[in-house]
């Protein structure tokens, strides 16, 4: 593997709430026409429950450890898309960072969705976490305020940029806030509106000029699907009131505090139990 130029950035995304991470990284890979250049050996880090047979030959299934590269004027962007979380998160992230060291990655961007108390009817908000204080000022330029306080289990993205700190690699985790009452109940439902909002911020940070008009249709379709689902829930006036309260909080600029997803889920579960009552 070759040693890469200095300004090389790594973008990492997973299949997470609203499928934001995987949508953003996949879109970027397709739009930039990034080419596959390396496959990490991740066997042992993911569950394997069988083998494939093609033309009478047996092989292990791919572990999805492929990396894609795009070379631009200002530097290279390397993209990793993860479909399922590995069993050994720490070991996996250390492997990614070993590679980041070899490739002399300047900064890691992780992208993903996070469940919060935001209404689906409002403009998506992007929040962030950084692993270096100086990056806070950098994010202010993009209109992203940092203020999250949290202590508890880590996501893959949080773990990666936290570990990157040990190696002196800058890390920014960008989170698209997805309405918890939609995506906790229907995890397979994507949120293209949030993905698009995060893509725009990321593209701006990476100095990429991308025409996003091709995903406008997908965003409209996605919004209709979410609205259709929510309309079923809204038949209960109590739930309608809940969304109105979220909208009021949003409009009054009440920052959605970081809440553990389990607590958010209990909120919906209790509401639905009362509904069945």
């Amino acid at each position: 593997m070759n040693t890469e130029p200095k300004n090389t950035y790594l973008v990492v995304g997973w299949a997470d709430p609203g499928l934001v991470g995987i949508k953003v990284t996949n879109y970027l890979k397709e739009k930039l026409n990034a080419k596959e250049f390396y496959e990490m050996d991740l066997h042992g880090l993911f569950s394997v429950s069988g083998v494939m047979i093609k033309d009478d030959y047996v092989s292990l299934p791919p572990t999805g450890g492929r990396l894609y590269r795009w070379s631009g004027k200002d530097g290279d962007i390397i993209i990793f898309m993860g479909s399922e979380w590995p069993n050994q998160a720490y070991e996996f992230n250390e492997k990614i960072l070993d590679l980041a060291d070899q490739l002399k990655i300047k900064r890691i961007y992780t992208v993903g969705g996070i469940y919060t108390r935001v209404p689906h009817t409002r403009k998506p908000r992007i929040s962030a976490v950084v692993n270096k204080s100086e990056l806070k000022r950098y994010l202010k330029v993009y209109g992203i305020e940092l203020g999250m306080d949290y202590h508890g289990p880590s996501s893959m993205n949080g773990c990666l940029i936290g570990l990157a700190k040990n190696r002196g690699i800058e890390g920014i985790s960008l989170w698209g806030e997805v309405p918890h009452y939609v995506h906790q109940l229907v995890p397979q439902l994507p949120n293209p509106k949030v993905s698009q909002a995060l893509l725009k911020v990321l593209a701006s940070m990476l100095n990429l000029r991308i025409d996003f008009s091709d995903i406008d249709r997908e965003t409209e379709y996605g919004e209709r699907a979410i609205e259709k689902f929510v309309n079923q829930l809204k038949q209960d006036p109590g739930f309608k009131g809940y969304i109105e309260e979220l909208e009021k909080n949003y409009d009054e600029y009440i920052v959605s505090e970081s809440v553990e997803s389990e607590e958010l889920f209990k909120e919906i579960e209790n509401f639905l139990k009362k509904k069945e009552g």
Binding site: V48, V51, V58, L60
Partner: peptide, 12 residues
């Protein structure tokens, strides 16, 4: 495909 260890051992 072959599911389970009778397949995975060959892949390994």
């Amino acid at each position: 495909g072959i599911s389970g260890m009778n397949g995975v051992i060959l892949g390994a």
